[in-house]
Amino acid sequence: MLLASTRAACSSAGFARRAASTIALKYSNAVFSAALAKSPQVLNKVQTELNTISTSIKEVPELNTFVSNPTLSAADRTSGLSAIYSRAEGAGAKKEPVTDITKNLFAVLSENGRLGETQGVIEGFNELVAEYKGELTVTITSAAPLPKDAQTRLEATLKQSQAAQKAKSLKVENKVNPAVLGGIVVDFGDKTIDLSVASRVNKLNSLLQQSV
């Protein structure tokens, strides 16, 4: 049933999200191409750096404020970028210099007033790396954590899809968002399958408004 719904129910919300991230994807493609042109090893290192930065921005309020404020002075931007690079270097014995590719990315984002696109750029980069490596990440969003047996059944069903069969590996993630109310939203590749209660409520509201 899920596969049948999957084929029939591609949500317009997925297309809207991708359209909104067009600017970020331009940077994602640029940094991916630059890293891969160096070597697969550099690509992996840049990915590690960017994911570390992404986590730091989520966990450190000052960094979150930094990337979200387009009105900072040049001096403040320089100081903020140094803090970002310091996070990407890691800590202790594992501390390594940040690649020029990562530094160049953030320098350009800063100069163009696009630091607010940071998370979108990193997400797009990770998607490109996953595609390059033949990995497929499926994100299942639900109002509450899925029971293990339900997630296992979903994984088994998803593995039968054409997209999963073409991939070298399949990774399934469960994200919780109370706003979906019930049901699930499945994101994989460039598709979004909205089987949530919230989507049904929105459709009902739209129909009611049209009939008034």
Rank of each mutant, 00 (worst) to 15 (best):
E117W: 06
R114N: 05
R114Y: 11
Y27W: 10
L208W: 06
F188E: 00
P178S: 04
S86A: 15
D76A: 15
A35G: 07
Q210S: 15
K166E: 13
R17M: 13
S196N: 11
E49G: 08
L105R: 01
P145H: 13
A167H: 03
T99L: 06
R18W: 07
T152P: 02
F15Q: 10
A20K: 15
K175R: 14
V185A: 08
A24T: 05
A130D: 15
T137S: 07
N29H: 12
R7K: 13
T141L: 01
L2N: 03
I184S: 04
L2H: 03
G189D: 11
S54V: 02
E155W: 01
A167Q: 05
L50M: 08
K168F: 08
E59H: 08
S82H: 06
K203N: 15
T78G: 14
V67H: 01
I193D: 00
K171M: 09
T22D: 09
N64K: 06
V108H: 07
T55R: 11
A107N: 14
V212R: 10
A37K: 15
A20G: 01
V180G: 00
E173V: 15
A156L: 09
I84A: 01
D194S: 10
T157L: 12
I101N: 01
V67S: 00
V201K: 03
A19F: 14
A19S: 15
V180I: 11
V121L: 06
V60K: 06
S54M: 06
I23W: 13
G116V: 01
E155D: 14
G90F: 07
L43Q: 08
E96P: 03
V180Q: 01
S28A: 15
L25T: 12
E59I: 05
A144D: 07
L43S: 09
K171H: 08
L207M: 13
N202M: 07
I184T: 07
T141E: 03
L207I: 06
G90R: 04
Q209C: 10
N44E: 13
V42E: 15
F125N: 03
N64H: 04
S110Y: 08
P178V: 04
T102R: 00
R114M: 09
A163Y: 05
I53V: 08
K103M: 07
K148Y: 02
S28E: 05
K133D: 14
A9L: 12
N29C: 05
F188Q: 00
T6C: 11
A93Y: 11
I23R: 14
V42D: 10
